[in-house]
């Protein structure tokens, strides 16, 4: 199958005859990256599935207005991140979870998740990541697992590169301390 560039896909999306085809290609191209990004934020497969579908529906509605001066994947990441954070906020409200206990709640979910296939040390790393504040957690996941550039992360999270570097540094220190102490 021919791999279309983002530019080619966006041009095809503008033509009504190819709109559906182009969008399906965009989903195929980015679904896994976005899925894992969302999954690391909300932990369970079911929640990730809902958020990912909502993300792509929002992309479908807004792609006509997408300004091509930014990269498509940073825009997709941004929507996926916002959808995930909104979901967590709603979850707190819906289940009356105190603000500080969300990560604790996610830790319990992680242990009982039937789709968690990691070993003990991987579980420990995930628990350590869940002890981080929300923003540090996002930064760590995007840098460590997704290997995104700071410049792209800056566009996705609307934060300066310097602040992101500092955030990542603190996150690594805290995780290593957690691994040492536990």
């Amino acid at each position: 199958m021919h791999d279309y560039s983002d530019k080619e896909l966006l041009e095809m999306f503008k033509e009504s005859d190819f709109k559906n085809f182009a969008f399906k290609q965009i989903i195929k191209k980015y679904q896994e990256r976005l899925y894992w990004h969302i999954r690391k934020i909300v932990i369970t497969h079911e929640d990730t599935d809902d958020i990912l579908q909502n993300t792509f529906i929002k992309v479908w509605k807004g792609l006509d207005q997408f300004r091509e001066d930014s990269k498509l994947y940073t825009w997709l990441y941004r929507i996926a991140t916002n959808e995930s954070l909104t979901f967590l906020k709603q979850k707190k409200k819906r289940h009356y979870i105190p603000f500080m206990d969300v990560e604790h709640h996610l830790m319990n979910t992680l242990e009982s998740d039937e789709y968690f296939s990691g070993n003990q040390i991987q579980l420990k790393l995930q628990k350590a990541i869940l002890t981080l504040p929300e923003k540090q957690r996002l930064v760590f996941n995007m840098k460590y697992f997704d290997e995104l550039k700071y410049e792209d992360m800056s566009k996705i999270l609307d934060t300066s590169v310097g602040a992101l570097k500092a955030s990542y540094h603190h996150a690594v220190k805290k995780i290593e301390k957690y691994l040492k102490d536990n």
Binding site: Y35, R39, H45, F116, G118, I121, Q122, L125, Q126
Partner: peptide
């Protein structure tokens, strides 16, 4: 620890 995803999908 490595960067392998510890999660799986259906």
């Amino acid at each position: 620890i490595g960067k392998e995803q510890p999660f799986k999908v259906p």
